[in-house]
Design a protein around this nucleic acid. Structure first.
Lengths: 224, 224
DNA sequence: ACCTGAACACCGTTCAAGT
DNA sequence: ACCTGAACACCGTTCAAGT
């Protein structure tokens, strides 16, 4: 169960293994102990290739996001392009649920780093093609980025509970029931919306949100 | 520097101290060691009032959010109400930057817990008053919630760097310069948007994003 | 240049024992 | 019922030593 290949240790192999550990057990699964065991080395060897745990997490995040955004597609309307980028991230976060908090953290750490510019660029160039005036590019792109990352993360949390669809609807049912049990005076809206939660299509609802923001962009900035 | 009052230990006092530690040093500032020192007790005493660190973090988050959302205001248009709730959270996250990742985490953990329903209710009741058809309440509210939390968190990160406004603009300047230094072929949009970053008003830009989503909601669901 | 592995400082958490 | 404090298991990280 311990070691695997005898390939030379490399930064790339460390990152790859980190992603495997994260996929298997989330952020708490990524420890230097687990890493040294899988790679059959000592901690010192890993520290020679990687500065610290934070840098390793960032690198793992960057690797997965780069893969998700790299997919080439036939050019469609700017709206279709935005939807495609959004769905690419949606799927990546569904496959790697640990991505969601990690991406928020990297966005929050300030817009430096390599992932934030990449995500902004992926959405922004199509926002630009939408005919939005330059002064509003940043606002419009931010709205898209934050919605996509937030909503995809919330969806991943729902999915994560169990692989088979059966348990998943069971989980949503439980949440829905919990919401219906809230105080009627304090939570009228949440109670009213609880059944929407029970039976909805994730992707559909996610895309409806993207379209809502696209509509907002199009309406506020109707092209000259 | 160690202990303070000799008030009886209580869950409330533990949570209050936790918030102080978080405000001072972020999530890494909240340890049971620091907590026992400030409260002049042992870890066992704290564990008698609190299940574990996760529960304590959740409670601290809930306490701060409840305060931010409790502010009573004169009733305005639904749009104004949404803006007021958004700004309330914006300010809370600016005062307590550790809130941003924590709120994402609680949203991501699934919509149970006490904070998620509270935030959804605060926005949702005004979305309802906007005349949105019931089938779209959840989507519209989600778009607002995710944008507000994401954008406020990103802003808090920018502010956190230093208190005096001087260092802050210095920081934004540095990020802006970094963006301008990116590859021209790979990052045309990010480069073009870099100067927008340099001199913008945070609150103004934040509110512009809220209005963009409000416009989207109003346009997609024009009241019957 | 790259790796080993013991050691260090610091966590969250437990629990027998006290009052 | 509430608190004490030593102890445990487990972290990330360092570093002298090897090749």
């Amino acid at each position: 169960m311990a070691q695997r290949r005898a390939e030379a240790l490399s930064r790339a192999r460390i990152i790859e293994t980190a992603v495997e550990l994260l996929d298997a057990d989330g952020e708490r699964g990524l420890t230097f102990r687990a890493l040294t065991e899988r790679l059959a080395t000592g901690p010192g060897a890993i520290y020679w290739h990687v500065a610290n745990k934070g840098e390793l997490l960032d690198a793992a995040t960057a690797a997965v996001v780069a893969g998700a955004l790299a997919a080439e597609r036939a050019a469609g309307s700017p709206q279709d392009e935005v939807r495609a980028v959004a769905l690419g991230l949606f799927d990546a976060i569904e496959d790697h649920p640990w991505l969601a908090p990690q991406l928020s953290a990297q966005l929050t750490r300030g817009p430096s780093g390599s992932v934030t510019p990449k995500i902004f660029e992926s959405f922004g160039r199509h926002v630009r093609d939408l005919g939005v005036p330059k002064g509003s590019w940043f606002t419009a792109t931010s709205a898209l980025v934050h919605y996509v990352l937030g909503a995809a993360g919330q969806n991943a949390a729902n999915t994560r509970v169990a692989k088979p669809g059966a348990d998943r609807s069971e989980f949503l049912d439980a949440v829905s029931t919990a919401w219906e049990g809230l105080d009627a005076e304090e939570y009228p809206f949440v109670r009213a919306v609880a059944d929407e939660l029970r039976d909805h299509d994730d992707r559909e609802q996610f895309l409806a949100g993207v379209d809502l923001i696209l509509t907002g962009i199009g309406t506020v900035h109707s092209p000259a």
